[in-house]
Simulated scan of single mutants.
Amino acid sequence: MKTIASCVEDILMTQPFLEEALSRHIINYSALAEELNAPISAILGKPIKSGAIMMALRRYNTPNTTLRHSLKLKRALQKLGDITVRSNLSDFTFQNSETLIQSHTKILEQVEANKDIFYAFTRGIFESNIIISSSENKQVLACFSAEKQIGLQEHLSAISVRLPKDNSKVSGLYYQIFKRLAWENIPIYEVVSTTNEFTILVEDHVVDKAFSVIKNLKN
């Protein structure tokens, strides 16, 4: 059976920014309780007093609840490895086709000959992306001349982070990275990840700020 406490928890879990602000004590309990009164009353099918909601908010935000995963997450963040920044990148988007792999093979031959080139390829259901050093733009266009190009974004930078080996068992690790970037109003153009490496693509004008945010995650 639904209770006021379970309703509060459900709402906060689906609104991480609200939960974060609450844990940092930058939201007024009374005002938030008034705001949540209508949706919680609707869920429970009866009018609820805001005072009861405020008590549920205070109980939810006790140290044991707020920090239930914090120690494990903090250790994982402290173990973040080297941070590498690469600038002057371009992101090409092509529509998937039966010949896309052949076109991809052509550009791989170009990239393999020059180890200094940044290159990443991701394939979705309907489209594929190539992130590559902008110096190779003409080569990409030539190799993919038979493909349908959907988009091209230039003036991008990549920030790559080495993750601890047990990162897949730590809940909230990626959320912490995305959350901190969002709090600083840094838009992410694209994300590329492997098992132990995480790369975000951002526009050049915010790369310094984004690097600083990620570096400070260790603190």
Rank of each mutant, 00 (worst) to 15 (best):
Y175A: 14
E112T: 01
D10A: 05
T199S: 03
M54H: 05
P39R: 09
K46Q: 13
L57I: 02
Q95G: 04
I214E: 01
K115C: 00
Y175E: 03
S70Q: 15
M1L: 14
V170T: 13
K74Q: 15
V191P: 08
N114M: 01
G151S: 15
K209Q: 00
D82P: 00
K179H: 14
R75F: 15
Y119N: 00
K74P: 08
L201G: 01
A210W: 02
E20C: 08
K106S: 07
I130A: 03
E9S: 04
I117S: 06
R180I: 04
T3P: 11
V207N: 02
E147F: 13
V191D: 04
A158S: 05
E34V: 12
I125M: 15
M13C: 07
L36C: 06
I200N: 01
S41G: 11
H104R: 04
L156Q: 08
I159S: 02
L163Q: 08
N28E: 12
E34P: 03
N64W: 09
K74I: 07
I186E: 03
Q149P: 08
S70A: 10
A38C: 05
Y60R: 02
W183N: 11
E109R: 05
Y174G: 10
F118K: 00
N185T: 09
L217H: 04
S171Y: 06
Y60P: 01
I200F: 06
S145Y: 15
R123W: 11
A38E: 11
V170I: 15
A146G: 10
K169G: 12
L152Y: 09
L141R: 11
E197V: 07
H205G: 01
E109V: 07
I125R: 13
H104V: 00
E154R: 09
E147R: 04
I131S: 04
V213R: 09
Y119T: 06
F17I: 11
V8Y: 00
E20W: 06
N196G: 13
V192D: 02
L152V: 07
M1D: 10
E35H: 12
V202T: 00
H205V: 04
K179A: 00
T199M: 03
K74E: 15
V207T: 02
V191I: 11
S160M: 02
A120D: 12
L163S: 02
A5K: 10
I43C: 08
E197C: 11
T65I: 06
Q78E: 14
V192F: 07
Q110K: 12
R86F: 01
L18K: 04
L108G: 04
F118R: 01
R75Y: 13
I214R: 13
H25L: 02
D208F: 13
K2I: 13
E35W: 03
Q153Y: 12
I186N: 10
T66V: 12
I107Q: 05
P39V: 07
H155W: 09
R86Y: 00
N64V: 11
I53K: 05
S90C: 09
K74D: 15
A76Q: 03
Q95H: 02
R58K: 10
Y189M: 03
R59C: 00
L181Y: 10
D166V: 05
N185M: 08
L173F: 07
K209A: 03
T62N: 09
L156A: 02
S103Y: 04
L77T: 06
T122D: 14
R123V: 13
M54P: 01
T195H: 14
I4F: 14
V111C: 08
G45I: 14
T122S: 15
K179C: 07
T3V: 14
G45L: 10
S135K: 15
A38R: 14
N114W: 02
